[in-house]
Design a protein around this nucleic acid. Sequence first.
DNA 1: CTGGGGAAGGGGCCC
DNA 2: TGGGCCCCTTCCCCA
Length: 252
Amino acid sequence: MPRSFLVKKHFSASKKPNYSELESQSVLVSPLLYEPCPLSVMPPGEVLGGTAYSPPLVWDAGLLSSLFPAGGEAAGSPAPGLDLAALSSEEDEGKSSGPPSPASAPAAAERFRCAQCAKAYSTFAGLSKHKQLHCDAQARKCFSCKYCEKEYVSLGALKMHIRSHTLPCVCKMCGKAFSRPWLLQGHIRTHTGEKPFSCTHCNRAFADRSNLRAHLQTHSDVKKYQCKTCSRTFSRMSLLHKHEETGCSGTR
DNA sequence: CTGGGGAAGGGGCCC
DNA sequence: TGGGCCCCTTCCCCA
């Protein structure tokens, strides 16, 4: 999966913005540089494409809380993170075949009862489906993303992940969108040229701490990543992978 | 072809 | 629970 699939590209001609043009403008690091991260602005259809991304709903905090009530109802609330269409059909089935209202319930509808939430179904199939889609999933704390196949053990983690689909943080200078504010901050450094991380060996400065860490490896005689076959060492794992993919001869 | 820099993404941890 | 930060990783580009 290309890592750029999450990034909403408002400029398509080149990968990088025209820095010379940017430099001609007065560049200020200010809150005006980026949108104040409104929750869950849906990417336009032309960006992600209808097949890959065509949710009919906007996943914002309100929707999430409505779908996954914090406290939850004692027995009837939908399980978090499951396929919502399936969920709703499951609920429909529950209504049609299963849990009767206390006043009018025929005794037959009570034959199959969920041990976890006490919900009753008239058929074993209905109970099985309920357990599969609802209570068992809830017991596993399975929160799955509506937009992809990923699953998380907490709603918070799912919400964080959903941001990678909705990309709420938008750079005001170039329109690029990011999932998290600190990613946007790092991106803004590419506009401002700010490089707060400097190498103690050569004084070279970097905008990103991880890139400084990778750079520090170049000062080391013994690189961190070693080929198991030929014992050759590399400063980066990607270089080691490339070395292995191109076929290690086994000799240095 | 290799190595290095730049940019960006995701998960986890802490407050 | 959410935000900020850290760390790791990946990909692209260029010398």
